[in-house]
């Protein structure tokens, strides 16, 4: 069993994301507080692909939102490339789980908007967007509105929308969650292909352990919520480039999967009981 050192190498070069002793609490409607995450510490090196796996409702997304600056932690610090995060994380790109495209914009406009609001001239932004649409395999879908696209196609547009801004950190919240198994694998390969062309730090939240192992350099396991903690941190030494569907047939993959699953299983059961099995 390999336990990666979290934060130990932070001193050498600043990590893309460094979360230290993060506690995140919400105030509920009845004025009680709900602690989603307690004392979580996690570092993501620049160019490293980290997958965060945990049972449903364990606060994985909460952790991601803290790194994005969408949530302010109750205690603890968030550092981005060595500097404390104030406000929104402008260096990060965020791929949401739910549909986040602007429904009133075509796919081309959706992809171009990130550049346009940053002051890139419209035509230049559109040309760049068209190139990104081709890169995600939607070259001829530029004039379609989101509702005319399939779930997988919308995710491709979302990916292009985020990557066109060349974010230094990629935050992904179960981005392929709503897709069918086949499409997930295709999207996983596409993601790896785009990521390996221009390696950035990635925080990839998923509840699918197989997906996590197939994609990531490191897999972090969170306990069942509330007050979820990070309970495991595994390096995935599988060679790259990887083919998401084929790597799952690999023996090394199976060994890793068995080992990590043994730990995750208990937490999944706990989470299942706590959410009444609804999640």
């Amino acid at each position: 069993m390999q336990q990666a050192a979290t934060g130990a190498d932070a001193a050498a070069s600043p990590c893309a994301v460094h979360l230290a002793d993060l506690t995140i609490a919400f105030r509920l409607a009845d004025r009680s507080t709900f602690t989603a995450v307690r004392d979580a510490s996690l570092s993501v090196a620049d160019g490293e692909f980290v997958a965060i796996v945990g049972p449903t409702g364990c606060g994985k997304s909460t952790l991601l939102n803290a790194a994005a600056g969408l949530l302010v932690p109750a205690t603890g610090t968030v550092e981005i490339f060595g500097a404390p995060l104030v406000g929104l994380n402008r260096t990060a790109g965020y791929l949401f789980q739910a549909d986040a495209l602007f429904p009133w914009k075509t796919s081309l406009e959706n992809v171009a908007i990130g550049l346009e609001v940053a002051g890139t001239p419209r035509q230049e932004a559109r040309d760049e967007a068209a190139a990104w649409l081709r890169r995600v395999g939607l070259g001829s879908f530029g004039d379609r509105y989101p509702h005319m696209l399939s779930g997988g196609q919308r995710k491709r547009v979302g990916l292009a929308q985020v990557l066109i801004r060349h974010p230094k950190i990629l935050l992904m919240d179960e981005p392929f969650g709503p897709l069918d198994a086949q499409t997930r694998q295709i999207m996983g390969n596409l993601l790896l292909e785009l990521w390996s062309a221009d390696r950035k730090g990635v925080m990839f939240v998923t509840h699918d352990l197989e997906e996590a192992i197939a994609l990531a350099d490191r897999v972090v396991i969170m306990s069942a919520g509330p007050a979820a903690r990070i309970i495991g941190d595994w390096t995935i030494p599988l060679a790259r480039p990887r083919e998401v569907a084929e790597i799952k047939l690999d023996k090394a993959f199976h060994d890793l999967h068995r080992e990590i699953w043994a730990m995750l299983r208990d937490e999944v059961m706990k989470g299942y009981v706590q959410t009444g099995g609804l999640g």
Partner: peptide
């Protein structure tokens, strides 16, 4: 949609740009 709004923010939109690209089209529809 809070997700669309958060997406706008993460894509670097200022309050004014959120108005123009998110709130206004939604209101118009």
């Amino acid at each position: 949609s809070p997700t669309v709004l958060a997406n706008g923010r993460m894509l670097g939109m200022s309050e004014r740009q959120l108005m123009r690209h998110v709130y206004w089209p939604s209101a118009l529809s």
